[in-house]
């Protein structure tokens, strides 16, 4: 188990994460989320799957293969796709969860892999086109490095990834005071 997790981590990957342009159009991905959303049936499915180690292995392999093909998924176990226009932030060479770095080329290229567009430029395009641009202003908590290799679907259906991100943050002068209260503490949640 442990070795499988390490295998997927950024550092030991042959040349590190590489930007991936999603193969599934944004509209399809948002629609797919409705099917996979946490509800009684999916929660039940998760509990059934987790009762059998064999089933869990197959289920996790299924997620790995399908999401790798569609999104370049690296199995971080805590999926951010629903808030990133379904472009995987873990394919960013810096694994940034909160938006692009300052090094994006003028034409939107990744500074580490210039042959690829920056995943966050793609994420922004897709999210805005689908009317979900606000999602990108959510503050994303640090990644739990212990979850690499796990099924993010099971973690989501079982509610283990609660609190991974905040509500979208809003600007505006009138709301300045609420933000100055800095009510957003970054202490651990949900685990």
């Amino acid at each position: 188990m442990a070795s499988a997790k390490i295998h997927a981590s950024a550092a030991t990957h042959a040349d590190g994460p590489r930007p991936f342009r999603p193969r599934l159009p944004g509209r399809g991905a948002y629609a797919g989320h409705h099917v996979l959303a946490r509800r009684a049936p999916t929660q039940w499915l998760a509990s059934v799957v987790e009762r059998s180690p064999v089933l869990m292995r197959w289920f996790t392999a299924g997620e790995r293969v399908s999401k790798r093909e569609l999104f370049g998924c690296r199995m971080c176990g805590q999926c951010a796709l629903p808030t990133t226009g379904y472009a995987c932030p873990m394919t960013c060479p810096k694994e940034l969860r909160n938006g692009p770095c300052g090094g994006v080329g003028a034409d939107g290229r990744c500074e580490v892999h210039p042959e690829q567009p920056c995943v966050w430029v793609v994420a922004h395009e897709r999210a805005v086109r689908a009317g979900h641009g606000d999602d990108l202003t959510r503050l994303q908590r640090p990644v739990d490095q212990r979850l690499w290799g796990q099924s993010s679907w099971l973690n989501y259906w079982q509610g283990r990834d609660e609190g991974m991100w905040t509500e979208p943050v809003e600007g505006g002068r009138d709301r300045g005071s609420s933000i100055l209260r800095r009510e957003l503490g970054l202490t651990p949640v949900g685990r």
Partner: peptide, 27 residues
């Protein structure tokens, strides 16, 4: 080895939590 365990936003958030809430990321 590139580390990037946190990103810039998370590091700012961490520092703010340390200073104002007197807590580490661990709580």
């Amino acid at each position: 080895k590139p580390v990037f365990d946190l990103d810039g936003v998370q590091l700012v958030w961490t520092a703010r939590t340390m200073r104002d809430d007197h807590r580490l990321l661990s709580g």
